[in-house]
Computed example of a mutant assay.
Amino acid sequence: MTVTFPVLDLRDATGTPESKATFLNQLRVAIHEIGFFQLIGHGIDDFDKMLELSRQFFALPEQDKLALNILDSPLFRGYSEIGREHTKGIPDHRQQLDIGPEQPERRPAPGDPVYQRMIGPNRWPEAMPELRPAIESWITRLTGLSHRMLRLICESLDAPADFLDDVVDPDPQIHLKLLHYPGPPLTGQDNGSDQGTGIHNDLGLLTLLVRDNNSGLQVAVKDGQFVEVPVLPEAFVVNLGELLEVATNGYVRATLHRVVRPAPGVDRYSIPFFYNPRLNATMQPLPSPYVEAADGVSDVAGNPLFALYGENVMKGMIRSFPEIIARHHPDLAPVAGSTSA
């Protein structure tokens, strides 16, 4: 199957009225028909620096990385060894560093919503002090870019540009991952699985992805058929999450995707940035003629979609990190056991 993934130039959105209208139409088609596109002209030019910092982090001695062991974090923050995070109950073959909003530590009170257990500070490597300021700068800039894209998405659907501002302001629940996918050392030394990251949808609003020159990201474009997203230098891969599917009654697609492991001896690095509503925000339908005529959200067995973002993200954490749930949130373990298969 031949699929052309749209390439949108953000500079067109600030050009002539004609160029903006063309951009908005291309955006609407992309988010409805594929749910993925590549974004250029965004003004962010330090992809190589961030990928190099990621390589340096994963090259640290294992003891330095394990000082940030995610198993020690009830907030789901820190370093994961290969196989720590699961997709549909199957371990993913990748290392990662998970980073969320930098917030003061708090102790949940009885009766607090479960999702408030995710609020608190990040964990940073003492052996690499330059990582924190670089990532915090990156998060600030990608938060601004994501909010701009969210407004353009609303415009492309003939909804007010600021309609979704209330679900993200003043503190969107951002999430950033540094990811390292190592290929098997030599042909014949594999465990038989090519799963880098298993088949899934993203949970929130939208994702901006930076990756190196190694392929591996695949998108289900039709009837479970997966197609490789071509590598385009200096482009963000942008895809939409389940909460936008909810807000648009299924008009916007939160498309299934996966990452396959690289070839033997190859190391793949990527940095996804997830832009999400506040934990306590509930999605409302966009006032849009496209939404009014939409067919409804995807009905996937075992994957209910919740309009309250905190509930949706905890659904994902319970499935992805059963060991953290068992260690820090044992009251949720029965739920984990029933939904992680």
Rank of each mutant, 00 (worst) to 15 (best):
Thr4Leu: 15
Thr4Phe: 12
Pro6Ile: 03
Arg11Cys: 15
Arg11Glu: 13
Asp12Asn: 13
Leu24His: 01
Gln26Trp: 02
Leu27Arg: 07
Ala30Cys: 06
Ile31Phe: 10
His32Arg: 11
Glu33Ile: 07
Ile34Ala: 09
Ile34Asn: 11
Gln38Phe: 09
Asp46Trp: 01
Phe47Thr: 10
Lys49Asn: 10
Met50Val: 05
Arg55Gly: 06
Gln56Gly: 01
Phe58Leu: 06
Pro61Leu: 03
Glu62Ile: 12
Leu68Tyr: 03
Leu71Gln: 01
Asp72Lys: 04
Phe76Thr: 01
Glu81Tyr: 12
Gly83Gln: 12
Gly83Asn: 12
His86Gln: 10
His86Thr: 09
Thr87Ser: 05
Ile99Pro: 14
Pro101Ile: 14
Pro101Gly: 14
Gln103Glu: 08
Glu105His: 07
Arg106Pro: 09
Ala109Thr: 13
Asp112Lys: 07
Asp112Arg: 08
Pro113Asp: 13
Val114Trp: 13
Ile119Gln: 10
Asn122Ala: 04
Pro125Ser: 09
Glu136Gly: 10
Thr140Trp: 12
Leu145Cys: 09
Ser146Met: 10
His147Glu: 14
Met149Ile: 13
Leu150Trp: 13
Leu152Asn: 10
Glu155Met: 11
Phe163Ala: 14
Leu164Ile: 08
Asp165Gln: 12
Asp166Pro: 14
Asp169Asn: 15
Asp171Glu: 11
Pro172Ser: 14
Ile174Thr: 15
His175Arg: 15
Pro182Phe: 02
Pro182Ile: 04
Thr187Tyr: 14
Thr187Asp: 15
Ser193Cys: 01
Gln195Met: 09
Asn201Thr: 11
Gly204Thr: 04
Leu209Ala: 02
Arg211Ser: 15
Gly216Met: 02
Leu217Gly: 00
Gln218Trp: 00
Val219His: 03
Lys222Thr: 07
Lys222Cys: 06
Glu228Tyr: 01
Val229Phe: 02
Val229Pro: 01
Leu232Trp: 06
Pro233Gln: 07
Glu234Phe: 11
Glu234Gly: 11
Phe236Met: 07
Leu240Trp: 09
Leu240Ser: 10
Glu242His: 14
Glu242Pro: 11
Ala247Asp: 09
Gly250Val: 14
Tyr251Ser: 12
Tyr251Gly: 12
Arg253Gly: 12
Arg258Pro: 06
Val259Asn: 02
Ala263Ile: 02
Arg268Gly: 01
Ile271Tyr: 08
Arg278Trp: 03
Leu279His: 03
Ala281Ile: 02
Gln284Gly: 08
Pro285Tyr: 06
Tyr290Thr: 10
Val291Trp: 08
Ala301Met: 05
Gly302Phe: 02
Asn303Thr: 05
Gly310His: 09
Gly310Met: 08
Glu311Pro: 02
Gly316Asn: 00
Ile318Val: 04
Ile324Leu: 00
Ile325Ala: 00
Ile325Glu: 02
Arg327Cys: 04
Arg327Met: 00
His328Asn: 02
